[in-house]
Write a protein that binds this DNA or RNA. Structure first.
Lengths: 131, 131
DNA sequence: CCTTGACTTGGAGTTAACTCCAAGTATTAC
DNA sequence: GTAATACTTGGAGTTAACTCCAAGTCAAGG
């Protein structure tokens, strides 16, 4: 699969795909006779993995370390697991934080609904108190 | 409360606090006779609100818009509600995405546990297949 | 009175993660 | 077979969100 198609399929620009390869986030992609990138099944799986991890905010640098360990073979399995455990931990914290803020937003929206209702009813003394 | 104390209390650098004020993320903070920032209760509530929102990843620009509407008074309550609803929506999507990735990480960690167990048992033919 | 240290400002510098560009080569369309 | 299109590379530019810096002010301790 050509880079343009991969870009289309995963919603990642061709520039970004090349950048990922350059910095080692994705190992060198398969090329055709002319030296042009021709993503095979494995390459696509790697792109998909990286896409997910990046969307979740895992730092490029951490992912580079991880990918480099994968390249070094089975002996690095323990170190790779450590990275995943650490990132899982970070992710969990992040989710908890976001859920807290979601609650705050929900509350604020409710308050606004009440205020707007009052304003609609012409109660202009519905001084907001919301920030 | 002086800027250094606020910085300490909320884990935001004094530079960042001044930056927030400069770009309009926080309305001008109360000053003492000498012109030095002296955060009052309202200022602190604002700092806390912004801290939460920023931690959840709400863009500074969006928050500037919101804060500016607050300054413009009650007539902007509807527009402010719209911003919050939109951000709530984005946040929910984000949380769903993170939870998906959390699941992927959990699965990968499990797979690593199995592999590491095999390796530990000396089954060097436990060829990983994990990426 | 002078020094120390926390504060002020506007503006420049940094970082992560892209994103774009110029110059060159290869493939496809006519 | 040649013009247009798509690809290549290394490197420069961009964006968001800080973060740091130089030069200056001011209150308080010795």
């Amino acid at each position: 699969m050509k880079i343009a198609e991969v870009s289309e399929k995963y919603g990642i620009s061709a520039d970004t795909l090349r950048y990922y390869e350059r910095v080692g986030l994705i190992p060198p992609v398969h090329r055709n006779e002319g030296g042009i990138r021709d993503y095979d099944e494995l390459d696509l799986r790697r792109v998909d993995f990286i896409k997910c991890m990046r969307r979740a905010g895992l730092p490029v640098e951490v992912l580079i370390d991880y990918v480099s360990l994968v390249q070094q073979g089975d002996s690095t399995a323990g170190a790779r697991r450590e990275i995943l455990v650490e990132q899982r931990h970070q992710l969990l914290n992040k989710i908890e934080e976001l859920e807290k803020v979601l609650g705050i937003l929900d509350h604020k929206i409710e308050v606004y609904d009440e205020i707007l209702l009052k304003i609609e009813q012409g109660l202009s003394n519905a001084k907001s108190e919301v920030e």
